[in-house]
Simulated scan of single mutants.
Amino acid sequence: MSEILMPNDTNNLGRALGGSVLHWMDICGAISARRFSNCQVVTAAMDHVDFIAPIELGDVVTITGYVFDTGETSMDIKVDVQAERPSEGESADAATSFFSFVALDADETPASVPDLECPSTAQQELQAEALSRRQERRQALAETADD
Rank of each mutant, 00 (worst) to 15 (best):
L116I: 05
V61P: 06
S91H: 12
R15T: 15
D50P: 01
Q123S: 06
L141Y: 04
N12I: 10
N12A: 14
D105H: 08
T43L: 04
T70F: 05
N38A: 10
E72D: 15
Q139I: 08
G71A: 10
F98P: 07
P114E: 03
M46L: 12
H48F: 12
S87D: 15
F98K: 13
V42C: 04
C118H: 06
R85F: 06
A106P: 00
A33L: 04
I55E: 05
G58Y: 07
L17G: 04
N38M: 07
N8E: 13
Q139S: 14
I27W: 04
L104N: 02
Q124T: 05
T10W: 09
E88T: 11
E136A: 11
E129A: 14
P54E: 01
A44G: 09
A106V: 10
L131G: 09
F101H: 09
E56W: 09
S91Y: 05
S112V: 03
R137N: 12
D50M: 10
A145L: 12
A45G: 12
A92P: 01
I77T: 00
F51I: 01
D147V: 13
D93N: 12
D59A: 13
A16M: 09
A106Y: 03
V21W: 04
G65S: 14
D105R: 04
K78F: 08
D107M: 00
G29M: 03
E3K: 15
E88N: 06
D147A: 13
A45K: 09
M6D: 11
G18Y: 05
I31A: 01
F99I: 07
A95P: 05
E136F: 08
R133D: 11
E56F: 13
Q124K: 10
P86I: 08
D59M: 08
V41R: 00
I52R: 10
E88M: 11
C39H: 11
R34L: 05
S20N: 07
S2N: 14
D59T: 07
